[in-house]
Design a protein around this nucleic acid. Structure first.
Length: 1032
RNA sequence: GGGCGAUUAGCUCAGUGGUAGAGCACUUCGUUGACAUCGAAGGGGUCACAAGUUCGAACCUUGUAUCGCCCACCA
């Protein structure tokens, strides 16, 4: 059966993938040799609702190359696939979908119903990206497909992937019990759009145009002081009486929550007023708060006025200062970052705050957190609206620092004049502003209760593993990045105020006895009980207690002894419900302890941090966990080094005391042809599926491999993909040639064919060399080296040379020669297919399948022959000489404009024995491919002979009559010029006594041999030039 | 502000002490029995700049310039 004229990627890819899948080719351990070592890769799980982008395509191509390579080598391989539930991203997508289809919103639906919608959407779209990975050719063990939310309560029964959920919860409980996870009120990055905390890493600091305002905080009671500014030499440059302290801020709206003004302890300008109180110049005049002027190391004397307002609840620096100085941190905003509208009226709250500032009242965290110091007229305003109002109010009152400016004005007649005005001092300056990486809204530091991993306690093993080389990070330079981050690691905020995710396994209850007795007593004594009042009192006055356990049932093991006999423990859904149940029962004298579960879910990266052990079945000691963990190689993007890689290192070491992988290979972002980031708004996004449709998956894969140099920038140019598509065609045509010549009729054999012809001996050696280069490259993760070596070998050596050279033999050789050559061609092509298969699985499998085979190429035996065994030095030298001869003749012909079809004579003087032997073996090749009609031995080269720079004799083409003397002279002189340059370098080196003394012997020898060769060449060319002169 | 990296042919990039490379683009020629998604032959580079180490530097060292990326609390 003759092969198709072209490889039809579209139809073949689907058919071949189906065949691999059906035959179970990708299953864990498929094609493993007995007693094989294992090789395991964990896929970086894509978002379950995501679609394949070019970065995935690149990343997964590299993984597939490694896996297919190792599988063919007979390793026991596992490529573990799966998807990530992607908390924020997925919740966002589903909420958007609800809005687009006019369905009830998330809040309207309630938690349980909303989660059903998310699971529905997961079911609908979850298979998309997996199918797209299959189109790329990814050879994952799909039966093991995992999902980070599998096994979660509410998961539909048909969600496969084991029980990742329980593993995550178990880790949380264990880490909690070890004191590695704690809950606390901390200042966190708050995303006002999603209304959740996010981690430091999910914040992008972006420079935006901002303003800095300067305001006066009047001193309490109209006090004054002498403000003195000095220059560097101590000369007084400004001296004035002031009744205020000047403050610079980029966030005026947070003034409402100021707890102090801080200056540097060594700042002499403010020394006279340290310890005094000053007034926050905003809010109802009669209720203005006074705050102390304190000292702290934080303020920079040379920046702004040197005085900083301290708003502990809305700024990370201020938070530290406030903590150090015991300054109250007043929370001003709600979860949407609008000014709070809850709590008592401003007058009441301000009075308490004033008492605190005066030192007349004790305060604690809970009390401060409950206070709302937003003046009534600001309540409910968005933070940016509030900012405008603060600025306007202060300016109106004349408490903005003023500055003189001049500007030009035109009167009605068009005459220009300058006017000098005094205006509020506002500096326009670029400021770094934090944005949520998903929501793109400005992050608000917010004081909230959150769960944290005490990373400082688990970071050390993760550092040590890389320091010691137990886990290797490539490229080297990323090691430093890893160290730097881990050495300065901050606590990891793992709670998210979302619904889609692993719910924190902690149950809260009222601390029983006191609260119960309080309510019981209140109900008994007061018939006119104010229920709201009682509730507030109970909720704020009685500490809650908490139990961390993997489920409500196991939670009881701790809760029952805690409450003691006589208490009935029940689960409720919320704090509200818990209170109602508690109070109603208390009123009746019943001791019921309601527990409710923490509503927060865990950061998605907390669960994906457990991906290596979780997908292998931990905590069960499954055979797969036993066999494949620790895994071999992680291939992923640099951008998730901190998010994921570092955390997997920490988590695996903390949970199972073992590194998750031997090697981490990190790569950059795939960019467009010009090096720009791909983005929808720029419109330069390349869709890998469109590429596959147009050029085939193999072309895309080969492009990916060839781009993957260690640490390189990845610029994807479709011209390049087109080039590799052409390569696929080239390979296909080499196969059709074989088919045409009958090499597909040679029965399949893994054995290296016996060869007598130099041609066939030579190609065996070339194949072996290539195999070594490819293996070495892949061993070192140098995918580009492997790809380039295969490309060059296939195109140049195999197609341009070997394939051409088989033609004379297959046309005119003896039967034995033909048989040997067919067998060798068949074998050599098989080797190319095998070596190319990890990079281009489809076309290689398709060609492989043109012949009866014991197995598919996906399970073919990866070769191990060495160049040392297969290279035949004699054949190698003969063929090199032959190729050089052909090229020299072709070059001379082209430049002398000899008719391409014409056969011409060749003459030689003083042919050396080695050349003679080579000629005899390969005469047919030279005659055919250089179009030579005869070779004549002569004593002198005739006039008008074009010289050939080939070793082993003085060769020439007698072209008298055809020759263009001037052109030939120019050609020779040009070559001589190049030669002279080289000779100069070589002689210079050899004449330098220090070179002889210092250079290694082999370099010395090589240089000498090279010089001799070049000198001989030069002599021949000079001779030729002389002959030309006679002619001219 | 700190860290990391890059600078090599017109373009995109390999090359990390021993004769400067590839693909694309370009020029000329070619309907040769695998292939025009091709073949043959070519042109094209002070390896950013400067100093140093070395017998020898694109490669090592130092500095400069330009461009990227990551991290960072200057109100």
């Amino acid at each position: 059966m003759a092969m198709e004229k072209n490889f039809n990627a579209k139809t073949a890819e689907a058919r071949l993938y189906e065949a691999w899948d059906a035959a179970g080719c990708f299953k864990a351990g498929a094609n493993a040799k007995p007693e094989a070592s294992t090789f395991c890769i964990m896929i970086p799980p894509p978002n379950v609702t995501g679609v394949l982008h070019i970065g995935h395509a690149f990343n997964n191509t590299l993984q597939d190359i490694m896996i297919r390579w190792k599988r063919m080598q007979g390793f026991d391989t596992l490529w573990q696939p799966g998807t990530d539930h992607a908390g924020i991203a997925t919740q966002m997508v589903v909420e958007r979908k609800l809005a687009e289809t006019q369905q009830p919103s998330r809040v309207e639906l309630g938690r349980e119903e909303f989660l059903k919608k998310v699971w529905d959407w997961k079911g609908e779209s979850g298979g998309t990206i997996i199918n797209q990975l299959k189109r790329l050719g990814a050879s994952c063990d799909w039966e093991r497909e995992a999902f980070t939310m599998s096994g979660a309560p509410g998961a539909p029964a048909d969600v496969a992937g084991g029980n990742f959920h329980d593993a995550v919860i178990k880790v949380f409980v264990e880490m909690y019990n070890k004191g590695l996870i704690y809950r606390g009120k901390r200042l966190v990055n708050w995303d006002p759009h999603f209304e959740t905390a996010i981690s430091d890493l999910e914040v992008e600091n972006i420079e935006v145009a901002g303003h800095m305002w300067h305001f006066k905080y009047p001193l309490a009671g109209g006090a004054t002081y002498t403000y003195i500014e000095k220059d560097e030499d101590g000369n007084v440059t400004l001296e004035e009486e002031r009744d205020y302290i000047s403050i610079a801020t980029t966030r005026p709206e947070t003034m409402l929550g100021d707890g102090a003004v801080a200056v540097h302890p060594s700042d002499e300008r403010y020394a006279p007023i340290v310890g005094q109180l000053c007034e926050i110049p905003v809010g109802p005049k009669e209720l203005r708060r006074l705050i102390p002027i304190i000292t702290d190391e934080y303020p920079d004397k040379d920046f702004g006025s040197g005085a900083v307002k301290i708003t502990g609840a809305h700024d990370f620096n201020d938070y530290q200062v406030a903590k150090r100085g015991g300054i109250p941190m007043y929370n001003l905003m709600d979860t949407k970052a609008a000014m709070r509208a809850d709590g008592k009226p401003y007058a009441e709250e301000a009075a308490i705050a004033q008492a605190i500032a005066n030192g007349e009242q004790e305060f604690d965290e809970a009390m401060i957190a409950a206070m709302n110091l937003v003046p009534d007229e600001y309540r409910g305003l968005d933070r940016f609206e509030a900012r405008k109002k603060v600025i306007a109010d202060i300016s109106a009152e004349g408490l903005a620092v003023m500055v003189e400016t001049t500007r030009k004005v035109k009167d009605l007649d068009g005459n220009e004049s300058e006017v000098t005005e005094t205006v509020p001092y506002v500096e326009a300056k670029p400021i770094m502003q934090p944005f949520g990486d998903r929501s793109k809204v400005v992050i608000e530091p917010l004081l909230t209760d959150q769960w944290f991993v005490e990373t400082s306690k688990i970071v050390e093993p993760a550092l040590e593993a890389v320091r010691s080389g137990k886990t290797k990070i490539m490229p080297e330079s990323d090691k430093k990045v890893y160290f730097h981050w881990l050495e300065n690691i901050e606590p990891w905020c793992i709670s998210r105020q979302l619904w889609w995710g692993h719910q924190v396994p902690v149950w809260y209850g009222f601390d029983s006895v006191g609260a119960w007795e309080h309510i019981y007593a209140a109900v008994q004594s007061d018939a006119q009980l104010d229920e709201d009042r009682l509730k507030t009192e109970v909720l704020s006055s009685f500490a809650t207690t908490s139990f961390c356990a993997s489920s409500f049932d196991t939670c009881l093991d701790a809760a029952e002894p805690h409450y003691g006999a006589g208490w009935t423990i029940v689960e409720t859904n919320s704090l509200e419900e818990a209170y109602t149940v508690f109070a109603q029962n208390a009123a009746l004298g019943k001791k019921v302890a309601p527990l409710y579960r923490d509503p927060d879910v865990l950061d998605t990266w907390f669960s994906s941090g457990l991906w290596p052990i979780g997908t292998l079945g931990w905590p069960d000691q499954t055979p797969e966990l036993e066999k494949y963990f620790p895994t071999s190689t992680l291939i992923t993007g640099q951008d998730i080094l901190f998010f994921w890689v570092a955390r997997m290192m920490m988590m695996q070491l903390a949970v199972v005391d073992e590194v998750p992988f031997d090697t981490v290979y990190l790569h950059g972002l795939v960019r467009d042809a010009k090096g720009k980031k791909m983005s929808k708004s720029t419109g330069n996004v390349v869709d890998p599926l469109e590429i596959i449709d147009e050029y085939g998956a193999d072309a895309l894969r080969f492009t990916n491999a060839s781009m993957a140099s260690l640490g390189g920038v990845l610029k994807l140019d479709t011209k390049r993909i087109e080039g590799y598509r052409n390569f696929v065609t080239k390979l296909w045509n080499a196969a059709t040639y074989g088919d045409f010549k009958g090499t597909f009729e040679v029965p399949h054999s893994d054995a290296i064919p016996d060869t007598a012809l130099p041609l066939n001996k030579w190609i065996k050696g070339e194949i072996a060399k290539t195999r070594e280069v490819v293996d070495e490259a892949l061993e070192a993760y140098r995918f580009n080296d492997a790809a380039n070596a295969l490309y060059a070998f296939t195109w140049n050596t195999f197609c341009s040379q070997y394939l051409e050279f088989t033609k004379p033999v297959l046309d005119d050789g003896t039967d034995a020669e033909k048989a040997e050559t067919k067998a060798t061609y068949a074998w050599a092509l098989d080797q190319i297919l095998i070596l190319l298969h990890p990079i281009m699985p489809f076309v290689t499998e398709e060609i492989w399948g043109q012949k009866e085979r014991p197995n598919m190429i996906v399970h073919a035996e990866w070769p191990s022959y060495a160049a040392a065994d297969l290279v035949d030095a004699q054949a190698d030298a003969d063929l090199s000489w032959t190729v050089a001869m052909i090229e020299a003749i072709r070059s001379a012909r082209a430049q002398m404009n000899v008719n391409a079809g014409a056969f011409i004579p060749l003459v030689v003087k003083g042919m050396e024995p080695a050349a003679k032997a080579a000629w005899e073996q390969n005469e047919a090749l030279i005659m055919r491919f250089a179009r030579v009609e005869s070779m004549t031995h002569v004593d002198e080269l005739p006039k008008g002979t074009v010289a050939l720079a080939v070793s082993g004799g003085t060769f020439g083409l007698p072209l008298e009559g055809v020759i263009d003397v001037a052109a030939e002279k120019a050609r020779l002189e040009k070559t001589l010029g190049k030669l002279a340059k080289e000779l100069g370098g070589l002689r210079g080196r050899l004449n330098n006594p220090k070179f002889a003394a210092s250079a290694p012997a082999e370099v010395l020898e090589e240089t000498r041999a090279n010089l001799a060769l070049r000198e001989a060449e030069e002599a021949k060319l000079n001779e030729a030039l002389a002959r030309l002169a006679e002619l001219g």
